[in-house]
């Protein structure tokens, strides 16, 4: 019983981080049809910003939980306007290459600034302790990660369904031409959602720093997992990415517990088979 709870707990924490990092990508892909392999760069930026601010400038960790996504959002908006927007509608090869180039630049700059070593992320003492809940004990930090992930997912789902901006996004995903002809300025919408996705990526990158290990190859390390979440969920669905993240978190944690000899092979095999049976992902419509 204890093991099952533990596995579920670990899976949830893992899934929350995956969800936060990948949800922005899912939106960009749905809106612009752009395969942003470089999305992990925002996660890396968020993680490093937080780590440097906490250790270097002595800012409190909770403050960075807000500050770091805001800064990265501005950075993402800038990048979208200056570079990404030029590549919408270009060939797949160009988009893929562009992203690889961007990852190279990001990881080289990170290595030049902060060195090649794994960067520790100091946590407030209140978070780095075990919490007793009945007969079970949980790592407080992971509880927070799950909380943030769950709240974000709920907020996004509600926001998409209930707010004006949400319906604008849905309209643009559904039919970009139609949305434009009824007066939506989709290019502004693109920049805004791109920045929002970057912010969530930064949040996920910061929270996932101890999961993936903050190092200059962070963007490369998370790339494949994030892409998998989007592919499994399917394009143009945001609800799907939450469930896909859960599923992948569960597969990854379960296989690490029971068949560690196979490593990540289980996950990649599962994804491969799933995409064969359902090329559009579990919930994709596009």
């Amino acid at each position: 019983m204890g093991t099952i709870i533990d596995i579920a707990f670990q899976s949830l924490a893992y899934a929350s981080v995956l969800y936060l990092i990948s949800v922005g990508l899912s939106v960009t892909l749905g809106l612009m049809g752009f395969v942003n392999l470089a999305h992990g760069v925002f996660a890396m930026a968020g993680g490093y910003l937080a780590a440097v601010a906490v250790t270097g400038a002595g800012l409190p960790w909770p403050a960075m939980l807000v500050l770091s996504p805001l800064l990265v959002a501005a950075f993402a908006a800038l990048l979208e306007r200056a570079l990404f927007s030029r590549l919408y509608g270009r060939s797949e090869l160009d988009q893929v290459l562009f992203c690889i180039g961007l990852i190279f630049v990001a990881s080289a700059v990170t290595r030049l600034l902060f060195g090649p070593m794994l960067r520790p992320m100091p946590l407030p003492p209140a978070l780095s302790q075990q919490m007793q809940l009945g007969p079970f004990s949980f790592y407080a930090y992971k509880l927070l990660v799950i909380g943030v992930g769950g709240l974000t997912a709920a907020a996004i789902l509600l926001g998409l369904e209930r707010t004006r901006i949400g319906s604008m996004v849905r309209a643009a995903v559904e039919n970009r031409g139609m949305a434009e002809s009824v007066g939506l300025r989709t290019s502004v919408l693109f920049t805004a959602t791109f920045a929002f996705g970057g912010a969530l990526g930064a949040l996920g990158g910061m929270l996932g720093a101890d999961l993936f290990g903050l190092n200059p190859a962070y963007a490369f390390d998370v790339l494949v997992y994030v892409q998998i979440v989007v592919a499994v969920a399917g394009l143009g669905t945001l609800r799907g990415s939450f469930l896909a993240a859960l599923l992948i978190g569960a597969v990854q944690t379960l296989s690490a517990y029971y068949v560690p000899a196979l490593g990540t092979a289980v996950l990649f095999l599962a994804v491969f088979l799933l995409l064969l049976v359902r090329p559009r992902g579990l919930f994709g419509r596009l």
């Binding site: 570079l83 562009f98 690889i100 180039g101 961007l102 990852i103 190279f104 630049v105 080289a108 030049l112």
Partner: peptide, 9 residues
């Protein structure tokens, strides 16, 4: 790596 990345972009 930095210049290669810039060059690709």
């Amino acid at each position: 790596q930095l210049w290669l990345g810039v060059l690709i972009v």
